[in-house]
């Protein structure tokens, strides 16, 4: 773990990614200090271009875009990290259990995992969200957590299968360690880099998906978030009336957040795989991204 952190500090990609991420986090926490406006208040004339008074202009209803952006970062970060944690937790637990226990338990978990993998994720989420109605960020985070763990299971299961054969597991079994202890204290620490990559990949996925669902009109229009900003800007035909700042600001914010996390993930992978310095486990993460779990 310590090795991972010190390795990350020496990796240029990781540092760039971490700095961007940190800036976004700080802006989110310090939102009331950075802006004098309220994100939901009408503080100016509609669709004013960027100026000293309104750094990123105003929306069609005269809200300050910059203020919405930094308050919206809170939502994106909370949903991203909350759902990401849930996805990783479920995926890692099921993956280790399936890989270590084997037999019927493995068959059952594996069957459901494969099934979840072939039902396309976004349409499924859209159906769920459509029945729920106007989904709040919390609801979105929960349904993301409950539906998107499958790739994590597949990855951790495969790795657990190979670790299970190692001598130190055999000796722990001989010593009579209970199986929960073996899974939690012998296997899990060896999966740290995979779990880390899975976690950050899941955060990216959750941030993107929340924004997408909200952009498509399935979110609660009263929340302040980047997805709702996109939704409002699109509904206000921001591009065709020339109010590019209204639409491009959340776009750039989302791109930066996604990019910063992806850089960190790339770096973790380089450190976990010194043989290649590039590649290896990133392939799994890329597949996670591709599994409809990272890119929508």
């Amino acid at each position: 773990m310590q090795q991972l952190v010190s390795g990350l500090l020496r990796n240029r990609k990781a540092v760039i990614g971490a700095v961007i991420l940190l800036l976004i986090i700080v802006a989110a926490f310090a939102a009331p200090l950075l802006s004098q406006y309220s994100p939901t208040a009408r503080v100016g004339r509609p669709h004013q271009p960027p100026s000293l008074e309104h750094w990123l202009g105003t929306t069609r209803v005269g809200r300050d875009v910059f203020t919405q952006l930094i308050y919206g970062a809170r939502t994106s970060l909370a949903v991203g990290f909350g759902a990401g944690l849930m996805i990783t937790l479920i995926g890692t637990m099921l993956g280790i259990i399936a890989g270590y226990k084997g037999g019927v338990i493995d068959e059952v978990i594996n069957f459901f995992t494969n099934m979840v993998l072939v039902v396309p994720n976004l349409p499924l989420l859209l159906v769920l969200a459509a029945f729920i109605g106007q989904a709040s960020p919390l609801v979105i985070a929960v349904i993301l957590g409950l539906t998107s763990w499958a790739w994590g299971v597949r990855v951790t299961r495969a790795e657990t299968l190979s670790i299970r054969q190692k001598d130190f597991i055999k000796s722990a079994e001989m010593l009579g360690e209970p199986s929960w202890r073996i899974m939690a204290f012998e296997i899990f620490p060896n999966l740290i880099s995979i779990v880390g990559i899975n976690f950050i990949g899941s955060v990216i996925f959750a941030v993107i998906t929340e924004a997408t669902l909200e952009f498509l009109g399935l979110g609660d229009p009263n929340t302040v978030s980047w997805g709702i900003m996109l939704y409002n800007a699109q509904n206000a035909s921001a591009l065709s009336v020339g109010a590019w700042w209204d639409l491009l600001s959340p776009c750039i914010a989302l791109a930066l957040l996604g990019l910063s996390l992806a850089l960190i993930n790339f770096a973790i992978d380089e450190i976990a795989n010194p043989r290649l310095r590039t590649g290896g486990r990133l392939g799994r993460w890329a597949a996670l991204v591709q599994a409809g779990e990272g890119r929508l």
Binding site: L254, G294, R295
Partner: peptide, 10 residues
């Protein structure tokens, strides 16, 4: 990395 981490919406 850019292509696969920036949302399709964006």
């Amino acid at each position: 990395i850019f292509s696969s981490s920036v949302p399709a919406v964006v």
